[in-house]
Write a protein that binds this DNA or RNA. Structure first.
Lengths: 226, 226
DNA sequence: AAGTGGTCTAGACCACGCA
DNA sequence: GCGTGGTCTAGACCACTTC
């Protein structure tokens, strides 16, 4: 017969063909279950997925409507850098450029919600792909929030943290910025070159863990399917 | 008692606290249902959501494992530009800079899978936020794939298409590029300024619809919560 | 072959939010 | 109040994949 994916497709087809135009209230789960001759839970599953991807808006009592101005939701995969390089069939390596304990810049401390005077571990790591500069990582790490630190010349902070502090919450932002003189030097590009920047904050339930800024070498593209 | 969200939290807590470390196989749905004293479907829902967010890997017969190198999945909202500006409490406006029928550049035709000789509609639109340049939109539109065209000086192509070709599939990519002379002029920035670029292709089931490149004014950040 | 997740069912109760 | 979606249940069968 049909599964919830078929029902999702059928509903989507009716939306695309304007049988159910934007803003319109579609039939209730019960009515659709009757039409498709299946259990309500099956319809529910299909409609839930469509709502999650922004196609439908659902409210109790009000019913289910086709979204007026659909906010497209794109899902991005954010892999560990080593994986990302390997996925392209290239060889990954990295170099620890600097490691020091210091007080972070005001902006970093503020973002993490730490007292500015707090000492943090500052790491700079260059990630290479087939021996060429790929990403420059600038990281501030709260040493109180994580287990005893390893030798960051042997395992990249990027990868170690993922394993240690798995699945913590946080936020992430993407932007474009001109390469600072230091970044230009590390990445072997001209100063002020347009760089793709990933900036990320991570908290454990108890304390801020880390702030990291990744400056990607020119040509980097973050891509996904809608 | 407890719902699937509580079970999700509990499982996540066990993962974070390393009761179930990365790579470990966790108990079966049936076993967990017994432990939590609920139906298997409830456990299933909780584990499905965790798998969807990359925390768990599930395979029939093999069972459910904690992901070794969790690929973080971030969900981005991609609103219509007018909405995006309004959400910041600013006033949206736009200016149609150019409109012409022409043959697209080879790169665009190739990406859309069209013969290079095909004529397409070329639109350049400047989107403004509180009267200041915000995004420069460069769009190629397949006129055969959409209903009769409106006056793009009255409604922006960005918004018209969302309503007309709702929920089509496509892909999207983000990058950083230096402003071309034309872009610099339109956005009132110095040439070679680092710009955040969004590039997007859209297809309907039958035909390619549109290719669009958005060049965002400096300071733009694409942000989300993990 | 057998174990595990994936899905479906028929029914029930609950929570929310319009009227 | 009462209609709608949100969830849970107990059971069943199926699909995949490893053993």
């Amino acid at each position: 017969m049909q599964g919830w994916e078929d029902i999702r497709s059928e509903v989507l087809a009716r939306i695309r063909s304007r049988v159910w135009p934007p803003g319109e209230t579609i039939p209730t789960e019960e009515a659709l279950a009757k039409e498709f001759d299946c259990a309500r839970a099956t319809v529910s599953r299909a409609l839930r997925e469509l709502a999650q991807s922004g196609v439908l808006e659902r409210r109790r009592k009000a019913g289910t409507r086709v979204a007026m101005l659909p906010v497209r939701k794109a899902t991005l995969d954010i892999p560990v850098i080593r994986q990302e390089v390997n996925a392209k069939g290239q060889t990954y390596s990295f170099r620890l450029l600097a490691q020091a304990t210091a007080t972070p810049p005001m902006a970093v401390a503020a973002r993490l919600g730490l007292a500015q005077a707090a000492k943090m571990l500052h790491l700079q790591t260059l990630h290479l792909s087939d021996g060429r500069a790929h990403v420059l990582e600038d990281r501030w790490l709260n040493p109180d929030a994580v287990p005893p630190l390893p030798d960051f010349a042997a395992i990249s902070a990027n990868e170690w943290l993922v394993a240690q502090v798995a699945f913590a919450s946080g936020d992430i932002a993407f932007s474009a910025e001109p390469a600072s003189p230091a970044e230009a030097l590390a990445l072997s590009v001209a100063p002020s070159t347009a760089l793709f920047i990933t900036e990320r904050c991570t908290w454990s339930p108890e304390a801020p863990i880390t702030w990291v800024r990744l400056a990607h070498a020119p040509g980097y593209r973050l891509q996904t399917v809608l």
